[in-house]
Computed example of a mutant assay.
Amino acid sequence: MDDVPSWSWLEGRPALDFVNTVIRRGWTEIELIRSPADLDSWLDAAALPAPRPAKVTARDVADFLAVRDAALRLLRAAVGQGAWDAGDTEVLNEALAAAPEVLALGDEPGVVEARPVGSPRPFTLLLARLAGEVRDVLVAGPAELALCDAPGCGQFFFRRRPNQAWCGTPCGNRARVARHHGRGSAAT
């Protein structure tokens, strides 16, 4: 039986929670979505920008990973950790085009709601909205977007102060301990 990961959220922002389904143990990247059960677990825990599909399949996992991997590379490029790739933008654009939406007036003044054009599969709509969340982060100017480079992390986060280097206190502590141990072994 698969071990379903437990989910810890740094941001509660769908775009970052989406790409943060890849973590690091030491400097090795670990894929957290390996099966429909893993994806089901993530869908139960995540702040989703669309209704949760009732059931996920192996095809949904493959589609999720394709869009997520492109989004991950684009966000890394946005923070200077890789090259911007037109193929990755095409993957996100295809996900967006698979479930186009219109902004319709809501039930009261000042409220709009996104409505899909046609009747896309629920998972297709969810992937389109996740791709839209990533697009919005990239377009809004990722000045506060950062990649935590502490050993064992590698998660995206939004800086809350200009000099913030790590996503949280535990990562800062790990980085300082690693730096301290690095100095000690260099001196001997």
Rank of each mutant, 00 (worst) to 15 (best):
P14M: 07
S8P: 00
G184L: 14
W166C: 01
G87K: 05
R59Q: 13
S41L: 08
L39A: 12
V137A: 02
R52L: 07
V4Q: 11
C171L: 02
E144C: 00
L138M: 09
V4R: 12
L39W: 03
R176M: 14
N163T: 15
A58T: 13
R59P: 00
V137G: 00
A70E: 00
D60T: 06
L16V: 10
A70P: 01
G82Y: 08
R24P: 00
R68A: 02
G182Q: 04
A178S: 12
E31T: 11
T124Q: 11
R160A: 15
S6Y: 02
V177S: 13
E113D: 07
D17L: 08
D3Q: 11
E90N: 04
A78Q: 05
A146C: 09
I33L: 10
V91C: 03
T89S: 10
Q155S: 12
D60E: 12
I33M: 14
T188L: 09
C167F: 02
T89D: 08
D40N: 11
V112S: 14
R59Y: 00
V177A: 15
C148I: 11
G154L: 05
A78V: 05
A186M: 06
G87C: 06
A178P: 07
Q164I: 02
H180K: 04
T89V: 14
E29V: 04
L130C: 13
T28W: 00
D85H: 09
A58N: 00
N93T: 04
L10S: 09
R159Q: 11
T21H: 07
A15C: 05
G12M: 04
G132M: 05
W166R: 03
R160V: 15
R179N: 12
P151D: 06
G152V: 03
P151N: 02
A95G: 07
P100N: 10
N173S: 14
A165V: 06
T124I: 07
L126H: 03
